[in-house]
């Protein structure tokens, strides 16, 4: 199976996103996650004891991975070079499939059955995170901390870009390439 067939980003999009590794993404996402915990604490209740575990989220079409500890007000996200990340749980898959999990567009089990993502480590922690995210119905504005018109605009424009890329890569709602 080629990379393109697995629903990964086309080459020109990867090239466009390459400079993002130079951004302080870890810091931005840490602040976003802590802000989210402040606004919606119930979202983190579903994680229970697993909130303190470290989750390595590795987009297979990016140059780096995220290491996340979703511990509410103490949440933390770091970016590390791909292949160097260690944690309790490891999830590997195309960026757009992982984003689809975040907003509930894609079904996690279907992604797993179809081998669009691979997982290892603490399966119980991964399930807790998947189910917590599923229930959260997250939108870009939740992470960005935007409300009202600004939030609506951010959701519409970001989701339009992601949807276009998902169609471009042939990803369907189950995470399978068409």
């Amino acid at each position: 199976m080629t990379e393109r067939e697995k629903g990964e980003l086309p080459g020109f999009v990867r090239a466009l996103t390459a400079p993002s590794r130079l951004l302080p993404l870890g810091l931005v996402l840490t602040l976003a996650l802590r802000g989210l915990a402040k606004r919606r604490p119930a979202l983190f209740d579903r994680l229970g004891e697993h909130a303190r575990r470290s989750f390595v989220i590795e987009p297979s079409d990016m140059a780096f991975a995220f290491v996340m500890v979703p511990d509410g007000a103490h949440a933390e996200v770091r970016t590390v070079a791909r292949g160097r990340a260690a944690g309790d749980v490891h999830v590997l898959g195309p960026l757009l499939a992982l984003l689809g999990l975040l907003d509930g567009t894609f079904d996690g089990d279907a992604l797993f059955f179809n081998r669009a993502i691979t997982v290892s480590g603490r399966t119980d922690a991964l399930l807790a995170l998947r189910n917590a995210i599923e229930d959260a119905e997250l939108r870009p504005s939740d992470l960005l901390g935007l409300e009202g018109r600004a939030g609506t605009l951010a959701d519409a424009s970001i989701l339009r870009v992601v949807g276009t890329l998902q169609r471009l890569t042939g990803l369907q709602p189950d995470g399978m390439p068409s």
Binding site: D107, G108, D109, A110, E134, D174
Partner: peptide
């Protein structure tokens, strides 16, 4: 019941 809302809706 263990599946996501994408599965449920479809």
């Amino acid at each position: 019941r263990q599946r996501g809302k994408g599965y449920v809706a479809e």
